[in-house]
């Protein structure tokens, strides 16, 4: 046997609470694999968000803290400043990071805080039942934009990666997707780079992962992957948005 693909060491045995086909599970697994590959499981402290990924600490077999809604980058800053030789990361959804926690993520990036953020963008508030998010696409139906997001009254979705890339303190920012195996492989590489940036002490790194919410999008999981590819990627182009040090 030359290869085994199985549950990474950094994941617990616990079955996730996610809806069928929700791609959070794929992203969790990639984070755990990166932790294993870098050999940092015992030196890592993760910060869980509020939202669907609130129970991240049940699934990753590492030290973790919860944080209030949107505050994960501030909590991570507190941890990292006390323990600069540990690897500290946040895992946040788009409601958490791009709405209630906008200030925290911008300033963590601006300070060049040596942390990594895994930003899961599924264009909706999942945990609370599918309300409009700052990332909801124009015309997208949600439980608080029943006629589709009206940009006249609700404004436009935020491209967080491009916005943060303008900040000097941001070292590595990449937007990836998990809608097919090839993109999952690319996403994993981006995560590995982001954690490596931190390990080398090079400053703030973030990977925005386009993700699905089949339940609240009202689609079958396989249809949701197609929707992501057709609708989300044109608005949120996949790119290494910033790689200041050519890592």
């Amino acid at each position: 046997m030359n290869a085994v693909f199985a549950r990474p060491r950094a994941m617990t045995e616990q079955k996730t609470h996610y809806c069928p086909g929700c791609t959070h599970g794929i992203i969790h697994r990639m984070v755990a694999e990166v932790i294993d590959e870098l050999g940092i499981r015992e030196d890592t402290v993760g910060v869980a968000p509020v939202g669907c990924a609130v129970f991240l600490y049940n699934y990753l077999d590492i030290d973790m803290q919860e944080s209030a809604h949107g505050r994960a980058p501030a909590v991570a800053t507190g941890i990292k400043r006390v323990l600069p030789d540990r690897i500290v990361f946040t895992y946040q959804g788009d409601g958490d990071l791009a709405s209630i926690g906008t200030a925290e993520i911008i300033h963590a990036a601006a300070r060049g805080e040596n942390i990594t953020t895994v930003f899961v963008n599924n264009a909706i508030y999942g945990m609370t039942g599918g309300q409009m998010a700052p990332t909801t696409l124009p015309g997208q139906f949600t439980s608080t934009s029943k006629a589709g997001r009206n940009t006249q009254s609700a404004g436009f979705p935020i491209r967080v990666s491009e916005m943060l890339a303008t900040l000097e303190g941001a070292t590595y920012i990449s937007r990836v997707s998990v809608h097919n195996p090839a993109h999952v492989i690319r996403a994993k590489k981006a995560l590995l780079k982001a954690f490596t940036v931190q390990k080398q002490g090079l400053g703030f790194s973030m990977v925005e992962v386009l993700s699905t919410c089949p339940t609240n999008w009202g689609l079958k999981p396989t249809e949701a992957l197609a929707w992501l590819e057709e609708k989300m990627i044109p608005y949120y182009p996949l790119d290494e948005v910033k790689n200041r040090l050519e890592v």
Binding site: Q65, R71, V75, V82, I106, H107
Partner: peptide, 26 residues
């Protein structure tokens, strides 16, 4: 030690949360 002027009161108290959780007197 660490002195950090946060972007907001909210950020400051959450940094305290992180640092306290990491075992520091903060």
């Amino acid at each position: 030690g660490v002195f950090l002027q946060a972007e907001s009161e909210i950020a400051a108290i959450n940094m305290v949360f992180g640092a306290a959780g990491a075992g520091a007197r903060v």
